[in-house]
Structure formats: C-alpha cells, structure tokens
Write a protein that binds this DNA or RNA. Sequence first.
RNA 1: GGCGGCAUAGCCAAGUGGCUAAGGCAGCGGUCUGCAAAACCGUUAUUCUCCGGUUCAAAUCCGGAUGCCGCCUCCA
Length: 490
Amino acid sequence: MAQKIYNTKTRRKEVLQPLHEGAIGIYVCGITAYDLCHIGHARAAVVFDVIFRHLKARGYQVTYVKNFTDIDDKIIERAGREGVTTGQLSERYIRLHDEDMAALNVLTPTVTPKATEHMAEMIELIKMLEQKGIAYEADGDVFFGVDRYPAYGGLSGRKLDDMMAGARVDINDKKRNPLDFVLWKKSKEGEPSWDSPWGKGRPGWHIECSAMSRRYLGDTFDIHGGGEDLVFPHHENEAAQSEAATGKPFARYWLHNGFVKINAEKMSKSLGNTFSIRDMISRYHPEVLRLFMLQSHYRSPVDFSEDSLKEARAALIRGYTALQALKEAKKQAGNQDVGGQRESGSDEAGRWDEFVSKFDMALDDDFNTAQALGYVFEAARQANQIAAAGKKMPDAALRAQLDIAAGAFVHFGNVLGVFQSDPDEFFMADRSIEAGKSGLDVSWVEMMIAKRQKARDDKDWTLADDIRKELADKNIMLKDSAGRTVWSVD
RNA sequence: GGCGGCAUAGCCAAGUGGCUAAGGCAGCGGUCUGCAAAACCGUUAUUCUCCGGUUCAAAUCCGGAUGCCGCCUCCA
C-alpha cells in the first residue's frame, strides 16, 4: 500500500510520490536555542522521529534535516542579560536539546544545520530576490514585497486583503506594505552582525530555513514539517521567498503536528504554562512521554495532564508485561525440547505477520500511530497467551512462536521508539522513578519484602498479609511469582 | 473582524459511505493464586453533540444550530 500523507497545502490526504524514486527529503523546523525544550518540542520531535523511522523501515532512503536557529532577537536579548555571547548561549541550549532528544530516544536527523553557518546561502537567496525586484532595501533592512508574489497566502489559506483588514500588523515606515517581512535586518550597535551587500546585519527568521533546505535538499523537495503554529507566518513566508527566488516549487507536502495543551489551553511561552522535557522525564520514564504522544493522531491536539501521563504509563507497563512474559517463557522453554508438533506454528506465524502488516499499514495511512498502537496491544494479548502456553508446553514449535512474537515487538518498538529497554530494566527504572516521587525508602521496602518472604516460608499467612497491607497503604503492589516477589509503585 | 479545526462509552482515543464502532485506563463477573497482583476468558456505546437533507445504506457526505479550540504577534 502506498504511503498517504495529509498535506496542509491542499488540506487533503494524498499519496506520497517522492521526487526521486525511493528517496525522501524532509525538512523540519527545529528549535530556537535560547531556553530549555518543553514538551511541545518533544511532541514535534517524537512525531517526526516516528515518521523518519517508519519511512526508513518502508525502505526509503530518507534525508532528514532539522535546523537550529542560533541567532535571533530572543537569543540576543537573553545572552545580553546573562553576559555571554549569543554563540555561547545557543551552544548551551543546543547541547541541552541534544541531551533531551537522546533521552527521548529521538534519532539524530541526517543533517542538523545551524543558521549562523549558512550566511552565504542566505545572502545569495536575498540577492536573487533583489535582482528579480521582489525584495527591496530600505536603510540597511531588506524586505520581501508580498505584492510582488501573487501566490502569497496559498499555504495558510489567506488572502492579502483579508490580512490587511486584521488589526495586528506592525507599523513600520520602512515597509511598502505592512505585510512585507524582513529578509535581512540591519544590526544595532553592539549586536552580533555579519557583512552583507546591505551593510552589517543579521538574517530575518524565515530566510534561514529557505537557505538550509535548499542547500541540503535542493530547490524542490518532498516534505516540510513543523508545529501547526508555524504555518503562518513562518512557512508561508519561507515558501514565498523560496519559490520567488528559484522560480521552482518549494516543499511538495507540508506536515504540521498539533499542539500540546495544558488543561485544554495551548501551552506556550507567553502563557507561562510550559513544562520542560527534563522535568517530565525526571518524573516519568521517557517512553511514557513518547507513548503519550503517540496515542493520539499527530494532527490532533493532546491534552497534557498528570492523569493522561498515568494512563500512558499503565499502557506502557502493559506492553512491557507482555515482553517480560515472552522473555520468561523463552527462558523456561530454552533447553527443554520435547519435540513434536513442528508444523503447529504456521497459523501462529500467519497471525503475527498480520499484526505486523496491519501495524505498518496504519502508519502508511498518514502515520496513524494511535491505530498502530491498537494492533500492538492486540499483539500484547496474543503474546501473553502464547507465553502462558509456552510455559506449559515447551516444545520447539512454541519456542518458534515465542521468537516470532518477540520479533514483531522488536519491529513495533523500533518504529515507534518504545520498548527499547529490557523488561527487567524498564521495571527497575520505573520503580526507582516512582519510589523517588513518593519519597519511599527502597531498602526499607526490600527489607519488608524479605520479612514477608520469611513469614511466607513459615506459612504465617497472617503476618504475610499484614505486611502486604502495610505496603499497599503506601501504594506498593507486590507480585509473588516463582521463588521471588517483585514490587511496583502504583 | 478574517481563516481553520474539533465534538465517538465514566475517562483517553482510532475509525471518514456498507462486516459484530479498534485499542488503553477505570468498572463488573469468572479462571488462576495460601491471599493478592499480573495474565487469560467474558462483560461495559442498538449508537457516534443536536436538527434537517442526500443515499438502497452515514459516526462517516451536504446544510444549519450549539459548544470547545487554534491561527492572524515570538511560539513545536
């Protein structure tokens, strides 16, 4: 089945037809490096990471470019406040960004260019626009004249006249049209600046993405992505300046992810209701955050709350429980080949092929991770079943089934970027995070469990149950299994 | 004021013309267990905000109403 993709530009789901057979170029707007990344950045990163992973799993050769904006007003402002250079400030936040992404299991894109390293490319584009009479200089600033580009507004579905009616256009005497936007900005005294044909200055926000996508992907490329708040003005302006300069189509498919909301309200810097990634992953396993993002379709808004994370954690635990069951069954079945029924696995193999194929098809349909996860959980139920059967009847056929099931989960995990830990390690990490949150003393818990184990050995069920209850009052759940007791915080 | 999106069980959330409306959480009954937990089996929406229309057939298409949200200003 062909890959389908919702294109913001046409507002329709379309079949993805790459410019070059078998290869796909993606450009995604990354962060402006002046502050910690928040969970909104995490959503965009995870969404495009899964798109990247799925397209690669489908055999495409994917070139994924995600930029860093390392020069802009906010960076200058903050660096000035902290008494460091803009370079020092942006380097610091790029490093923290990279750490956050690594923690979230986000693959590093193919290219991660920085704006300040592409001044020549930006200046060249601006010169092209100036030569075509689309850009004009005014006292050291260079503007893009929206009147000279008839297709302006095509991406975001607006008309120039309608926008003029809106009150929120800034007053700037240098602009011929209030909707014109800056390509090159004259620097003030003491600000970082670069030499250009228009004097010392720095690039406008939009031109960097036009320049870097052009350099790494070409004038025309397949997919351009970002958060939906970038549709206007950022992407509209990018498309306008690129197409006007090169005379060729820019991105062919535009993908925009929905917002993360807090209490049904948009999370944003200006509202002051952001949560940083590092704060969240200190309180939940990073895969919980990933699963939370992937449980909804990427274009829908998601409402972030303590409860929604708890539900995502419960779901993740369900998946890992199945993986652990497979692992245990495999261990037990390991060397106990009792032979026979070697053909019995074929129906089972077909069932697992179907899980995998449905999973892949869900992602083929505009990256429907929510639907794909539905199949993952159906597979988890099936895994639990064969793991239980495998413990009772450890023959070669069942062993093969366990391998097939485990293989399917490797595929699900690799594409979604979850289930990347060994189950035991996952449960240990989860336990440690939860114990930390409720201020539990781990050694005390383990001492109590040892005490209860002794009571159980003595068949002193009253004492054993009292200890279970005492721990349960602290939300500690015990699970007795062959020879040992494992615990978790509920 | 202009433009756009969403409304599915107690909660979260897929499904965009036709099989029994995925899946997760929570709940209930059962199996298993010293007791539990987990797991497994069964169960929980005759119905998809409301009102009209198109169609042999609509949660799904069209029109209208109501409610919520986003963009138009830096923002993933």
